[in-house]
Design a protein around this nucleic acid. Sequence first.
DNA 1: CTTAGGG
DNA 2: CCCTAAG
Length: 564
Amino acid sequence: MVDGNGRLVPATDDELMEVEGLLENEKRETHIVADTGQALGCISNEVSPSGMPQLESSEGLSQSENTEADTEKLSAYLEETVPSGAKSSSDDHVTQSGRVGECLKPLDGPLEGGSSTSTGCISSKPDFSKLKGEICLDNLSIKELHEVFKATFGRDTTVKDKLWLKRRIAMGLTNSCDVSATTFVIKDNKLVKKDNEDGFNNVNLGAGKEHLAVAVEYNEDLLNNLSSQIDEHQTTSEVRLGNNVVENNFASEDLAADQRAAKRVRKPTKRYIEELSEAESKEYSGRSIASTKSIGFRPLSSKAHARPARNVSLEGRTVITRLDSLGGFGIQVPCVYRIRRSRPRKNVTALLKFHPSGMGMTATFIKKGFDVHGSQMDNGSMNKVLEAKSTPEQAPEQFVAESKKETTPTDMGQNMGLKYVDPSGDTSDDNVVTVPTAKGGIRRKHHRAWTLSEVMKLVEGVSKYGAGRWSEIKRLAFASYSYRTSVDLKDKWRNLLKASFAQTPTDKGANSRKHPSMPIPASILLRVRELAEMQAQASLPNLSTGKLSACGGGSVNETRPGYL
DNA sequence: CTTAGGG
DNA sequence: CCCTAAG
């Protein structure tokens, strides 16, 4: 969106999102770090009673100060040299600036060291981090984070960066947008995110408690509503943001991002490049489909500029990649990343072999730790969820308000790719493998595990637009994910239906026990069932209604009032 | 091209 | 997921 100094190109939604995300991230990190120092003790335990009050205060703070404060903080952070942030930040927000100073140390240490224990909370803002889900993520070890990651996205990740993992997970659980999107109101996001996560965990455990289920559902609904609202307001907010905030912060953000990347990510340049290229290509495709067709090369130029680029070579590559994706004529370039694309898994494996020190180990633990951690996490999450119940009320309002401002339901995938390259290539692009078989070119798509967020989006889309309007759903609700064709959506929905109906009856033992492999968010299934019922009613009022209702009534919850 | 259904 | 048929 920004070319050189000014912004030549109209910012696309995605791009804006990215920027926002960056800002958000920066800000968040700062806050988090600071908070960590202050409230670490609280976090470790359960929720402290005092937490609530603090939360409120934090909200007010964040809302009012946000724009200015964040920027200032950011700058302070960047400077690193001046921990106290005496300069600009001191104005109104003495407290915050002070924190910023504190955070600097912790932040740098862990990141550089890489192995250092707990950096603090990733996603959290300072105050409420104590309360909520943040805590969970924070306390988790990398190993555990990997586990969660896998549960959330359905795949392993080689990323060792805790922060990254946390954020990613949070995004996934939040249904994507929230985490990256909210510049100002982190709190809401946090809450929401946290709730979801908790719910998720609980479901998996299958404690068999009705209350839990209810709570989860409630949260989800909230989330969905929020997200939908966000969608509506997306355009508006983006524009606003772009004019005001982005401009100011953009440069600094970028720098910060780069710095951070350098510190925490020690991955092969190659990978980085690849990811970048992928993200771009995706974005491009998404762009054309979703909003503007006219923009052909803009994305490209914007991207290149956006990334200050640490290495010349890197930049050059990026450009090339883009060309390839765009025109399809860049023949030479493709080979580099193509390799990886074709064989994602295999490549990963190969990487592991080559770099036994880092990745190989990680992979090992993940498997190992899965079961063990599951129990721990679940227990912890349960408590949290219960507590969370009280919070929801306040969350919605703010969140909504925030959403208007910020927004960004775009895709996390792109954002992620740009910000931090994802080694595993989760969101951005796994690989669409093209297998050149003897036959003449079979394109095997290499299964892409459906993430929780994706499923949630799908469900939402169906609820909104109705099942069978897959193209609509794909375009509107699902614009973020470039892969996932309408057919895919349909198939997934079919599976979900099947699963939901199959599983409904046994609430207690059977359903909960399914810790292995792919976790099945029970709440989601429930919703799926509801939707299915509704649709069935719509189409075949008489016959099917009776059938379905009879079926559904017996088991879990009936239809939820007021949704859709 | 999009949807539905079978494999 | 892939592939095919039908509107």
